[in-house]
Amino acid sequence: MKRRISEPVKKPLVWIGFVILFALINPWYFPAGSWSPLFFGVPYWALIILLASLALSIFITWVVKTQWETGADEDEEP
């Protein structure tokens, strides 16, 4: 049986996404030591990091759902 085979590691888009999101989950782009404004006691930069982390989780979901298809299980079934 012929199936479309797709591996995340071979997709440039996946790498671009991972590199950008990796850059965003490192807090290098905030002024050192800044924390104001606070939202419900949480510094603004921490919220941005959490949002970037959530974006990474969502991106991972997309990658798993659409970029990963090896048909490994069909190999075995007759």
Partner: peptide, 23 residues
């Protein structure tokens, strides 16, 4: 928090092929 997400990201770089080879 993000370092635990990184684990899954790293998995995606090898798990698909590894699973297929494992089978």
């Amino acid at each position: 928090v993000p370092f635990f997400i990184m684990i899954i990201m790293v998995y995606l770089l090898f798990a698909p092929r590894l699973y297929a080879l494992g089978r």
